[in-house]
């Protein structure tokens, strides 16, 4: 396995994630699902080095992700948070160049990353002039500038503020990286997005309760046990049927008045 987690425990205040044991292959997109506070961000934060793990092991190929120096980890793994943050005066291009902090400057890579994420036209716009969705696209472009083929991508709800067209474009960017050999962990609440993954890890209250292919995990019965609301299968949204919440009659829109 390219990524392997063994008995990983992360503690943040009173919350404890784990012990988590799981593995992911190269060329795979893994969606991480779970309710609010289930431990998705803690897991990705521990792998990205921003949260200290209490115990356990996380290996990326031969690299010990938990003990690696920031420079070594940055050579193998890139990270996109849900809310990217940067000094207001930076331009989009300067923000993407930060992805090359530990690598030689490469203007062509920066141009390509901006173009792939649809940010070329906004390259000289300052950070404070961007919407939240545009900031997420800029953060994905920065990760792309840092990412080397075959690396690890840690994506913590990276598309949460994007419009549907941007989500589609950004997912295509991640999918292309996966086709070139990357392993991507994508934390999300979007079940349609999760349906586009190769595998799903399901977290509940800090425990990994299920892991496997979408066809086995994204079923109404499994999701109902996690979220506690009814789900139904919807055909035709993507290549496979997608389980989505079934809203009750109490949430039905008001009938138009005659």
């Amino acid at each position: 396995m390219t990524l392997s987690l063994r008995e990983l425990i992360v503690r943040r205040g009173h919350f404890r994630l784990g012990p988590v044991s799981a593995a992911a292959e190269s060329r795979s997109l893994v969606a991480i699902l779970g309710g609010n506070g289930s431990g998705k961000s803690s897991l990705l934060g521990a792998l990205a080095g921003s949260i200290r793990a209490e115990r356990g092991e996380a290996r990326w190929r031969s690299l010990d992700l938990l003990a690696a120096a920031p420079a070594d980890r940055a050579a193998h793994a890139c990270f996109v948070p849900q809310r990217p943050s940067l000094d207001a005066a930076f331009t989009v291009r300067e923000s993407v160049e930060l992805g090359r902090y530990r690598r030689p400057r490469d203007p062509a890579r920066i141009d390509a990353a901006l173009s792939e994420c649809g940010m070329s036209a906004l390259a000289w716009r300052r950070w404070h002039d961007l919407s939240e969705g545009q900031r997420q696209r800029a953060a994905l472009a920065r990760a792309l500038a840092q990412h080397e083929p075959g690396g690890l991508m840690l994506l913590d709800e990276p598309f949460a503020a994007m419009d549907p067209a941007s989500v589609r474009q950004s997912l295509a960017v991640v999918r292309r990286c996966v086709e070139r050999g990357a392993t991507a962990l994508l934390a999300t609440h979007d079940l349609v997005l999760a349906g586009a993954a190769d595998e799903v890890w399901l977290l509940r209250d800090g425990a990994l309760v299920a892991a496997g292919p979408c066809s086995r995990i994204l079923t109404p019965s499994v999701l109902e046990s996690i979220y506690g609301i009814p789900f139904m299968l919807v055909e035709g949204l993507s290549q496979r049927a997608v389980a989505l919440p079934r809203w009750g009659d109490d949430l039905a829109p008001r009938a138009p008045s005659a």
Partner: peptide, 21 residues
């Protein structure tokens, strides 16, 4: 200077691009 540029990101992002915060 370059480390300070990267430190203008959030701590989590700065660590992820290789800054030893």
């Amino acid at each position: 200077a370059r480390a300070m540029d990267a430190a203008a990101l959030s701590d989590a992002e700065a660590v992820s691009v290789g800054v030893d915060v």
